[in-house]
Design a binder for these strands. Structure first.
Lengths: 114, 114
DNA sequence: TTCATATATTCGATTTTTCATATATCCTGC
DNA sequence: GCAGGATATATGAAAAATCGAATATATGAA
């Protein structure tokens, strides 16, 4: 993982918010990120594709949804950088977390239904 | 310190190398960075000005030289991010450190002469 | 099969970033 | 003050990133 390429990925509002939200929530799909960030579907999708191509995110399809999570193979230092950023700037994604919490009818993950 | 603005600063080869070198060496001037990165003076200078404007670096003039160091007011999380990046990628600036060590007649800091 | 929902991709226009050259400013020694 | 070297800035051209709109693909249900 080239450090410059890594930071280029973080150097965009949409991508950084998506990454930190995913790091915090564990796993999110496109429609959840649309709601949390209040952005169009193509915009979210394009940035996620970029993050997947750089191998920061990995995806898994479940039915009609695609869930994104941090790439398990991510180097330790990269994971630490995101964690440090999140801890040092808790207010940065506060609004996004709130919007996500208020979202109606979020997709149900396998293994989470009753 | 806005996280996105911070990462934009790190998302360039010249700036990231300069930052990490300065973080490692404590203090460097333009001519030392030119030698260490093998880049033109205007290029180095422009990027340093950008880093100073974002308040990642602070400068001090000593005679004809201007020395740059990490801004002492830098938030803890930002300093940690750079440290983590440096520790996790020691080879990234290895060549630059070598070039700097081989540089002839480096400017003498006040208080460092015998 | 057909429809509805979720996600991905392409295209063209706009904005931002980057760079090289040239010019200006500052400092020191004479 | 003046000359020469070191550092800083301005300008315009080239390259890259971003965005919205339109389009395409995939899945599940009827």
């Amino acid at each position: 993982m080239n450090p410059v390429a890594f930071f280029k990925c973080l150097a965009d509002e949409t991508r950084l918010r998506s990454l930190l939200l995913i790091a915090h929530e564990g796993e999110l799909c496109v429609c959840e990120l649309m709601e949390a960030l209040d952005q169009s579907q193509p915009k979210i999708s394009r940035h996620l594709a970029q993050l997947r191509q750089c191998e920061l995110l990995s995806d898994r399809r479940q039915g009609q949804w695609v869930f994104y999570r941090l790439n398990p193979a991510l180097p330790e230092w990269a994971r630490l950088v995101m964690e440090t950023t999140l801890t040092g700037n808790p207010e940065f994604i506060a609004d996004n977390k709130r919007a996500l919490a208020q979202m109606q009818s979020r997709p149900v993950r396998d293994g989470h239904c009753c």
